[in-house]
Design a protein around this nucleic acid. Structure first.
Length: 390
RNA sequence: CGGGGCGUAGCGCAGUCUGGUAGCGCAUCUGCUUUGGGAGCAGGGGGUCGGAAGUUCGAAUCUUCUCGCCCCGACCA
């Protein structure tokens, strides 16, 4: 991507409490539309999509099938499970033109049960493991910290259907371990804790937390109090939904038995904030982000230090052609200071700076994290490829 | 839901107490000079002060109502 073709509205000043919200707004990742509602601008959308892909891959590798449930659900499904009343004001209720009642889903247990129910399944179809990554809405009392506690958020939610508690419980453990892999891949240092099943209900649940300034729970660690932020929550639901919604199969004794269900959530949009929160750096009041190479919005940032130099333009353009799909090429005719400021917020792990003076020695500067090296032009590909392979 | 606060140009703010029809920084536009960490100079454009009603000769400023937003608490899979 060329800077001149990319909508990246960087702001110098934003008024926000949390660092992640500040940086996400500043760097042009998101924009506030209303309280608790954020638009994802091109940069932010790349990041959330990368994370979505990682989460999706891991869910598939655990044995889930990806599907997609609409954001609007008919109210009657939620009346069947008796959560329509229980959810209270957090649930957004809307009517269509025929005055039928709908809700904007805060979760999707009910429609997912309905999906399986409609399929008229038998014992031999089990287990069934489904997930979707979809926008959810909860009308929070007090949205805060940008996309950390917002009203419309992007959530990955998995649902499992088994014949017995034993097999459901076994799968629960598979997901428990799968979650650890997801957070490992995202370089987030999570810990788990047993939790109340609360509104969702069921037999047991575990939460996945990361220590964070913007956490909303308080926990004790090494005798000290820390704030922690919940990123995931898994539930062994038993027959909490399958009994009231009448989802059952005929077992080998020719008896009708309710399916045993599990549900597994990960806050994808919240993950972005958690990651910004853990990858930012601050030097002399200048904030920068350092994205790990696996999910950086752009792996390579090509910085043309002088867009008026024919030689600089030629080499920059050539490098851009070579790494087009993974790079951001700052081709603008602006001061180098502004390009570095943009670069700091973009957070690419590999930065190639084409300086006129270095170019005279047939070299460019390459920065990886906080280290810099002068690399001969003919060595660039080798140098870069070596880092990309790792 | 209780307490506090804010709403003035795209963004960040001053002006409100003590009424006299708006100002600063950044951004933006034009020109010239610049380009090794958010360039400099000169010139220009953009708001009628969240909305409504009221008081007044006159309201960003005072009064009332209303909408939106934020912070603390409570709440939160």
């Amino acid at each position: 991507m060329k800077a001149s073709n990319f909508f990246l509205p960087i702001k110098k000043e934003v008024n926000e409490v949390s660092i992640s919200a500040k940086l996400m707004l500043k760097s042009g990742m998101i924009q506030k539309l209303a309280s608790g509602l954020y638009s994802w601008l091109p940069l932010g959308y790349k990041i959330i999509s990368n994370i979505e892909n990682i989460v999706s891959e891991e869910f598939e590798s655990m044995g889930f099938n990806r599907m997609c449930i609409p954001t609007l659900h008919p109210a009657h499904l939620w009346q069947e499970s008796e959560r329509y009343e229980a959810y209270g004001k957090e649930m957004l209720r809307v009517n269509d033109r025929k005055n039928n009642e709908f809700i904007y889903g805060p979760s999707a247990e009910e429609p997912c049960v309905d999906m399986v129910r409609q399929a008229n399944i038998g014992k031999s179809d089990l287990p069934i493991n489904l997930f979707n990554i979809q926008w959810k809405f909860r009308d929070e009392l007090r949205p805060r910290f940008g996309v950390v506690r917002c009203r419309e958020f992007f959530m990955c939610d998995g649902y499992s259907f088994h014949e017995t508690i034993e097999s459901s419980s076994e799968f629960y453990d598979t997901v428990f371990n799968g979650y650890k892999r997801i957070f490992d891949r995202l370089n987030l240092n999570v810990f788990t804790k047993e939790a109340e099943t609360g509104e969702v209900g069921g037999l047991k649940s575990h939460e996945f937390h990361v220590l964070s300034e913007i956490g909303e729970d308080e926990i004790e660690r090494d005798g000290k109090k820390h704030k922690s932020l919940e990123l995931g929550h898994i539930f062994l639901l038993g027959d909490r939904y399958t009994v009231p919604m009448d989802l059952k199969i005929t077992n080998s004794d020719n008896k009708q038995t309710p399916l045993i269900m599990g549900c597994y959530g990960v806050g994808v949009s919240r993950l972005v904030a958690a990651m910004v929160e853990s990858y930012y750096e601050c030097k002399d009041e200048n904030y920068s982000i350092n994205w790990p190479i696996d999910f950086a919005p752009f792996k390579i940032n090509i910085i043309n230090a002088n867009a008026k130099s024919l030689e600089c333009n030629q080499l920059s353009g050539k490098l851009y052609e070579q790494y087009k799909n993974i790079s951001f090429y700052d081709d603008r005719n602006i001061s180098i200071g502004q390009k570095f400021a943009t670069s700091d917020l973009l957070g690419s792990p590999i930065k190639i700076i084409i300086w006129p003076k270095e170019l005279k020695n047939e070299s460019v500067e390459i920065r990886i994290g906080n280290s810099k090296e002068i690399v001969k032009i003919e060595q660039i590909s080798k140098f870069i490829d070596n880092i990309l392979v790792k």
